[in-house]
Structures are given as C-alpha cells and as structure tokens.
Simulated scan of single mutants.
Amino acid sequence: MKKITLLIATILAIIILNDNRVYAETSSKPPTLHSESAFLMEANTGEILYEKNGTEPMYPASVTKIATAIFAIETGNLEDIVTISSEASAKNVEGTTVFLDEGEQVTLEKLVQGLLINSGNDAGVAIAEHLSGSMEQFSEDINAYLENVIGTEQTNFKNPHGLFDDKHVTTAEDLAKITLHAMQNDKFMDIFGKKELEWDGKTWDTTIRNHHKLVKEEIPYIGITGGKNGFVSKSGFTLVTTAERDDLHLVAVTLKTSLDSEAYEDTISLLDYGFENFTVSSIEEGTEFTVEGQEYVAPETLSFLHSVEEQPKEIIEEDGLVKIVDGNETITAFQLEKYSDGGELEARNTAVESHETSIFDNIFVYFLIAFILGIFILVNVAIRKRNKRRYARNNRYFL
C-alpha cells in the first residue's frame, strides 16, 4: 500500500511540475485596485497584461459611447445631414447634452464629436435614430455589429449613451476589445483624443471640452492618446483610456468605483504597470532570412510583447517559422513567406494557436490527475475490503 501511494504521489508531482503554464515575470507586482472590474491590454499584440473580474457583467455608463461612435463611423456616412427629432432634442433627453434643438440640422460627424467629446446624450439619440430609425432597432443593430465585427461576448446595449437600463451591460474585457478595434480608425482616434472643439450650434455656441481628466491634462500623464469617462449611480465611475510610449500602446478599462479620484488612481496604476514592466519588439516588414538555402521574408511588421527583463531570441526553423524564445519558453511564433515563390505562404501569428494548445494541454493534465486519483481511490477501497475479509476469516472462531 505504501509503495502504491508513493508511486501515485511521484506521478502527480511530475505532472504538476511539467504543467507548462507560463506567467510573465515583471519587476513589480500587479496593482491593487479600487475598481470592481478592470482590464489592461496591449494594442499592437492584443496581449492581456492585467485583469480583475474582466468577464463580469457590469454597467458601463457613458463609456458606451465608444461603441456608438465607432459604429457610426464605420457603418454611416459622416457627411450625412441629420435632422434632429423631438425625441433627440436636449429638452427630452436626460443627462449631459450638446443642447440639440428640434429641427436643427447637423452632420453625422458633428454628432459623433458631440457624443465623444462632450458626452452628449442627445447626440447619441440622434445618431441611433439616423442609423437605425429607432432606439429599439439601434440596440439590435449595434449588438449584432459588436458581436460579429468586433467579437464581444457578453455585451448587450439597450441605448447609445449608457443611461441606466438593468439590461444594458458589458464587461471590462469587451470594452477593451471595442476600444482596440476603434483605435485602428484614424477618424475615431482624432475625436477620441481631442481636448476641446469649437461648437457652433443652433442654440449653443461654445467650446466643448473633453471630460476625461487625463485627456484634458487636468491630471498630467505622459502618453495619453484618448479616453472616455462615465458615471451613473448604479455603475459608479467608469473610465476607458488609451496611451502610448515608444512602441507600447495600452488600453486601460476600469469599472465601478465609488469615487471619481479612485477611477483615475486605478487607471494610472494600470498604465504605470504596463509601461514599467513590458515592451514590444518587432521584426520589420521586408526583413529577409535564409534557412538551409531557402530565402524567407517577413510579409508585414511582426510585433511581440515581452517583459522588459527578458531578452528573447529569434529561432528560424526550416519551414520558415520564426519562434520568439525566452530561455526554453516560446513567447510567440510567426510564419514567414517564401521569398522565391511570390509569397504563396500567408503570414500567420500562431500565438493564438499556441495559447489554445496550452489550454488544451492543461485540460488534459487536469483530466489525467483526476483519472489517477480515481484509480487511487478505487485501489484503496479494494484493499480495505480485502483486509476486512481477511480479518473476518481469521477471527471467525472468536465471534
């Protein structure tokens, strides 16, 4: 019995020690946050640097407008003239507005500017009506767009502005995905990063100013490229922020704090953590390699994230696969194109495949552990029963 126990314990130890999950070593610990949910992503690579309850459904408040803005930019015509309805006029919309007046004519682009910069809820209603005809249809249209185009998994938006609805929910991870997608659009980023804009409206001539304190530099921070804030009582304070330094582009999402100052404190902590501990290296487009007489070329700039403490190496295999290796660990891999065949091979980042394989391997490991434990329990039960029978047989004359 002791030999069996020792054998099983040895097998379990070997399996656990060979579990190949790897976590990036950094020079500082991940931050401790006030926010109930948070997410930090690197935009070039899509790598997740930090998350806290990242997949928990949350009320987003006005950071909803990031989704409305990119939806309008990508599916609408920004030069369209929108006539403001009674429902979209400022007098009939709650919260912050850009004082749109019934019958006023405004370009779709101006409405997106008023939506993102001044957080105009009336602009959101006008955009929804123009794109979809009604708020109800807009909800269906934007949710389909977010799921099918961007790949959100737990987002359900009931309106374009984020005013409270108990069914209007998303997650920090989905918001990071939405923002990452929007960042690829120059028009969006131009508006998303504006500190202020002259507004010449029918009833309101003013300078509208971004409400995000890092964007308007009320709180100084080097590298901020854009942001949107939000608040309703049931969502608490919410923030989405983008920043870049050198080749590192970060998306930080914080959801639900009780104080405005805590949301900014958390955001700065996330950005500091990202900039201080990670960096992006690249193989430039057109870089040539020769392996065993075969020439290969990088078809595009191939970027990969790693800890600032790592010095990863490039290993080129015979089939043109570039492995980025830190010690014995492969960080990511890219497929080069054969230089001589006109690029028949398509470049593909195999990091996702490696991650999926890693997940599968881990599931297999856990199944194997459970299987071995099951055998151990069955053997133990059988031995106990056998010993009881022997005891009963040896002592039957004394009963």
Rank of each mutant, 00 (worst) to 15 (best):
Asp141Lys: 10
Gly120Val: 02
Lys213Phe: 06
Glu140Leu: 12
Met189Glu: 12
Leu163Lys: 05
Leu197Ala: 15
His212Asp: 15
Thr171His: 13
Glu173Ser: 12
Glu217Val: 06
Asn185Thr: 10
Lys177Arg: 10
Phe157Pro: 05
Asp141Pro: 12
Thr152Asp: 13
Ala182Val: 06
Lys194Arg: 15
Ser139Lys: 02
Arg209Asp: 07
Phe192Cys: 04
Ile178Asp: 00
Pro160Phe: 04
Thr207Arg: 02
Ser119Lys: 03
Gly162Val: 05
Trp199His: 09
Ala128Glu: 05
Lys216Asp: 15
Ile142Arg: 05
Glu217Gly: 04
Asp190Tyr: 14
Thr152Tyr: 10
Gln137Met: 11
Phe138His: 02
Lys167Ala: 12
Asn118Arg: 13
Glu173Phe: 14
Leu214Gly: 01
Leu214Ile: 02
Val169Phe: 15
Ser134Val: 00
Glu153Leu: 14
Lys202Cys: 07
Asp165Cys: 04
Met135Tyr: 01
Gly193Tyr: 00
Gly162Met: 04
His212Tyr: 13
Leu197Cys: 06
Ser139His: 03
Leu131Arg: 06
Leu197Ile: 08
His161Phe: 01
Glu217Trp: 04
Asp165Ala: 07
Glu147Ala: 14
Glu173Pro: 11
Ala176Phe: 00
Thr155Asn: 07
Gly151Ser: 10
Phe192Val: 05
Ile142Gly: 10
Gln154Lys: 15
Glu217Ser: 11
His168Asn: 05
Asp141Glu: 12
Gly124Val: 08
Glu140Ala: 12
Gly162Asp: 11
Leu146Gly: 06
Glu198Met: 11
Asp166Thr: 08
Glu136Arg: 05
Lys177Val: 01
Val149Ser: 13
Ser139Leu: 02
Leu163Gln: 05
Thr203Pro: 08
Met183Tyr: 01
Met189Arg: 15
Gln137Phe: 04
Phe164Val: 11
Thr171Gln: 14
Gln184Cys: 04
Lys158Ile: 08
Asn156Phe: 08
Thr170Phe: 06
Val169Cys: 11
Asp190Glu: 15
Asn159Asp: 08
Phe157Asp: 03
Val149Ile: 13
Glu173Leu: 08
Gln184Tyr: 08
Asn118His: 14
Asp200Lys: 14
Ile191Trp: 00
His212Leu: 13
Ser139Asp: 03
Lys216Tyr: 15
Arg209Thr: 14
Thr155Glu: 05
Thr206Tyr: 12
His130Asn: 07
Leu131Glu: 08
Leu214Val: 00
Lys187Ser: 12
Asp186Lys: 15
Trp199Met: 09
Glu147Thr: 12
Trp204Met: 07
Thr155Met: 03
Gly133Val: 09
Trp199Tyr: 00
Lys194Pro: 09
Gln137Arg: 05
Glu217Cys: 05
Ser134Glu: 01
Leu197Asn: 11
His181Gly: 09
Met189Val: 11
Leu163Pro: 10
Lys177Thr: 01
Gly124Asn: 06
Gly201Thr: 02
Glu140Arg: 14
Asn121Trp: 07
Gln154Glu: 13
Phe192Ser: 02
Glu173Trp: 10
Glu196Asp: 09
Gly162Ser: 09
Phe188Arg: 04
Ile208His: 04
Glu136Asn: 06
His168Pro: 09
Glu173Ile: 10
Thr155Trp: 03
Ala126Cys: 02
Asn156Trp: 10
Asp165Gln: 03
Val125Ser: 01
Gln137Thr: 14
Asp165Leu: 04
Leu214Pro: 04
Asn159Val: 01
Asp190Pro: 06
Phe138Pro: 05
Lys167Met: 11
Lys158Pro: 01
Ile191Tyr: 03
Asn143Thr: 03
Glu140Cys: 07
Gly120Ile: 00
Lys202Asn: 12
Ser132Trp: 10
